[in-house]
Design a protein around this nucleic acid. Structure first.
Lengths: 109, 109
DNA sequence: CCAATGCTTTGCCTTCTGGCTAACTATCAA
DNA sequence: TTGATAGTTAGCCAGAAGGCAAAGCATTGG
């Protein structure tokens, strides 16, 4: 459940685009077909598909085709990787803060 | 304290690079001079400075120059914006899950 | 079977990224 | 004051990113 640095590259890259974040938000409401997802965006389909591809490659969504319709689904476990990295960072600074606090407090014991 | 979509672009973009994430991790141990920070990386200084600039522009770090030394410091509040976005997303799906659960359960009332 | 629908593939274009070298500026130390 | 140190500025480059239009290929509805 620990994210490789390479996977984080892809995930953060995928998140670094407003269109893609909007797609994720939309998918929060449940699985949706590509065509349906694309409607709100003023963008040619091939361009839109690149965003879908980026999201899928990063693992943030899964997609499956049934007949001629491709449906996209959120993959929450990948979000957890981001969360994990964030928490790991925080553990580093709070660790330091704790040591700092210990240092500051140590003459009162 | 709510992140504009534009700021998130920059933040995620900044995080989408292993060098920059490594810098952040290093800064978790406390403020550090650019030269010191740069040592572990096999990269020319101007290239390295671009990473510093990206991190500073995104708000993930602050930097200040004293004499000829520029020192970098983590800016934890910016990490909170990422966390905020992540939680907002989760609120969306868990909201849906709750409603789904309510639906599934509603005939038992 | 034919047309419409829903993606896919191809190929092209512009801008942004991340790297470099070389030359420059501004301290600090002797 | 002169040399070493710590960044900075300028300019170049290759490759990735994000957009497009046009043509292609399977379903599906009639």
């Amino acid at each position: 459940m620990h994210a490789g640095t390479e996977q984080l590259d892809g995930i953060f890259q995928a998140l670094a685009d407003p269109t893609r974040r909007a797609i994720l938000t939309r998918l929060g409401g449940g699985p949706t077909a590509v065509g349906e997802l694309a409607k709100p965006f003023d963008m040619a389909l091939p361009s839109f598909m690149k965003h879908i591809a980026a999201l899928e490659q990063s693992g943030l969504i899964r997609t499956a085709k049934s007949g001629r319709v491709r449906t996209c689904t959120l993959e929450p476990s990948t979000f957890a990787l981001v969360d994990g990295w964030l928490n790991a960072q925080r553990r580093i600074w709070t660790g330091r803060t704790d040591r700092l606090e210990a240092f500051v407090t140590k003459d009162s014991k």
